[in-house]
Structure formats: structure tokens, C-alpha cells
Design a protein around this nucleic acid. Structure first.
Lengths: 187, 187
DNA sequence: GTCTATACGCGGATAGAC
DNA sequence: GTCTATCCGCGTATAGAC
């Protein structure tokens, strides 16, 4: 892999593990096996590198979501597949976790992909549920966009509870519980 | 207020705004209007100060939760009151947000109050729902502990979505949506 | 493209005077 | 209790050689 690639991948890993404030250029270089000059040759500095890393992570997340939703079955089954998707629960959401980073959120360029990805996810689920509704698969409580918000919030909060408890159990419990609740609204 | 108090309150504010990694002793001192020597006289260092701050924030959160749940009405109404409680949504949860802090979570002493508070909250809601269930107010989907996990996860995730969107709307939408969903399970 | 040298302030303290 | 001095490595680069 190219040095540039190594730098981006190392930054992705560190942003996930330590956040933006907790990630130093030095740590990125060490993890990538690249020198200082090398890093500053490929990127203007920490913000530029973080932007490349975040964008790639965001793109990857969209792909993974689409993959889960592309499976067979009803909208309800697709949502279940999405929530049950394999993930590193204890590491938290690689995008959602960034919302806690003050310096990142203060930089509009870095903040945009975070906002866009989470907004896109809600819209994507809203569209899915709206379709199901048109096919008469769902009752009226609550509306599609609201249901999507509950789903994404439960997932994001599930990560938080799992990290707090150092166990994946609360994540699974919350998402399974939500599915059970939603199941009573579908036919 | 005493210098010691100022230091704790400043640390609380900074932990909330910037997290543990993003908060320096220097920033604490400046905010508290205290000198270096003063800070190190009252506390052995950043971890000790953070511990005092986190414990106080955790205590305050328990009090506020109890206050919301102590209101009149059914379990369902109490949960609604809890979710609708006045809060600084865009600043995130002062306890839940700390789960993203790698250095804090790596220190067992600092991590404990975070874990304990979120676990306590789930247990507290579980007890409330169990009671309602005994009074025949709720049906069987899902069980009390699971319902509690969904509620807390939705709240924590609501904070994440709100911060991402820089708007309180997704928080309100998710919590209101969950309440609507839960309402179909109660009688 | 990558390396080494240099810079300067901050992070997180310790020491000792007042 | 609080202040000032001092410490040492890290964070985040820039400059210029190879």
C-alpha cells in the first residue's frame, strides 16, 4: 500500500480509537510507519488528513448500510438485518462517536461528513419505511421519519451503553427490544 | 464559593464541553481563576479533579432523574416526564458523552461512575416498569429491562443525532416517537 | 517523496518561597 | 493556601538537505 494510503488508514483507526483531539500527527506517523516529512508532503496537516479519513469512513458506512438493506425480505426484515449487522460494538460508531469531539465539530469542513452521514442514514430508513407503508405493511404509529429517528437513535445510544458497560449486551438488548416494539406495528 | 469548589465546577463544565482528553489543568485553572499551586494544593492532579467532577455530575443526574420520576401519574407518564425533562440537548449527555473518552475509560476509577450511573438509570427504569407491569398497566412486549434499555439508548442516541445535526429536533423526534411506540403497549 | 533539524508553546506536573 | 520558577516531553508544524 502507498504511504498515502497508510496514512489515511492509520488516521481512520486512531480517530475511531482516540477521537480527533486525542490523535496526534506523531501517533499517525508511527502507526503508518511514515516520517514527518512524508506526512506533510501528502497532507497539509492534521485537519486535511482527518478529512480524508472521515470521508472514507463515511463512504464505507453508506456502503455497508446499503448492503444490509439490499438483502431479501420485507422492510421490517431489512431493518432487523441492518441492526444485526456485524460491528465492533465496543469501539462505538466510527461516525457517531465523532460528535463528541469539540475541535472536530468546531471545524465546518470536518463536521460536514458527520452531519451528512447521520442525516443520510435517517433519510434512507425513512424512504424504506415509507415504501413499506405504501405497500400497506405498516400501521400509522409513528410516521416514517419518526420511526427512522428512533431506530438510528437506539443504535447510537446502544453503542454508548455498550461502551459504558464494557459489554455488547445493552446494544443487543436495546436493538432487539426496539425490533420487538416495531414488530407490533407491522403486519 | 471556595477555590476548591470553583475548581470542581470549572472541571465539570470543561469535561462536558471538551471531554477529558480535551481538558487541560491550565484551562481548568483559568476558568476557576485559580493558580497552579492552588490547584495542586487541593487535588493531586488532573485525574483526581476529574473524579470529583464526574462524581458530582453523576450525583446530580440521579437527583434529576428521581425528581422527574417522582412526579404524579402512571409509569408511562413518569417516563414521558423523564424524557421531556429540561436539558441542554446540544451539549450532549454529561455522563454518556464521557464514554467516548479513551483515557478516561482506560482509568478504572474514572470509568466506574460513568458505568455505574448508566447502569443505575437502566435499573431504575426497569424497576418502574416492573411495578407498572404488576399493576397490570403494561402488556408483555418487551420485558421491563429490555424496555428500559430501549428508553435509555434512544435518549443517548438522541443526543448524538442532535449534536450531529446541530439541532434539538432529532432528539425530540426520537424520544417522542419512542413514547408513541410505547403507548401502544400500555393500557 | 522522504529525512533530519529546528522551533515554540502547551500539557502536566514538582519545588520551594511567601 | 497561593504564587512563581522550573522541568521535560509532546503537539504541530516549517525549512531545507538528499
Amino acid at each position: 500500500m502507498s504511504t498515502r494510503e497508510n496514512l489515511i488508514e492509520s488516521t481512520r483507526a486512531l480517530l475511531w480509537e482516540r477521537g480527533y483531539v486525542g490523535t496526534s500527527p506523531k501517533a499517525i506517523q508511527e502507526r503508518a510507519g511514515a516520517g514527518q516529512g512524508s506526512m506533510y508532503h501528502h497532507f497539509s496537516g492534521k485537519p486535511a488528513l482527518a478529512l480524508a479519513a472521515i470521508q472514507r469512513t463515511a463512504d464505507q458506512m453508506r456502503e455497508r448500510v446499503e448492503h444490509a438493506l439490499a438483502g431479501p425480505g420485507t422492510a421490517q426484515e431489512k431493518i432487523a438485518a441492518f441492526l444485526a449487522q456485524e460491528r465492533d460494538v465496543l469501539k462505538g460508531c466510527p461516525i457517531g462517536g465523532l460528535t463528541q469531539d469539540p475541535d472536530l465539530m468546531a471545524d465546518p469542513a470536518l463536521r460536514a461528513p458527520v452531519e451528512d452521514t447521520l442525516t443520510w442514514l435517517r433519510e434512507r430508513l425513512t424512504a424504506l419505511i415509507t415504501q413499506a407503508r405504501e405497500h400497506g405493511q405498516q400501521t400509522a404509529v409513528p410516521d416514517a421519519a419518526t420511526t427512522a429517528a428512533v431506530i438510528v437513535a437506539t443504535m447510537q445510544g446502544g453503542y454508548v451503553l455498550a461502551r459504558a458497560a464494557n459489554s455488547t449486551a445493552p446494544f443487543t438488548q436495546a436493538t432487539d427490544g426496539l425490533l420487538a416494539l416495531l414488530a407490533t406495528q407491522w403486519r
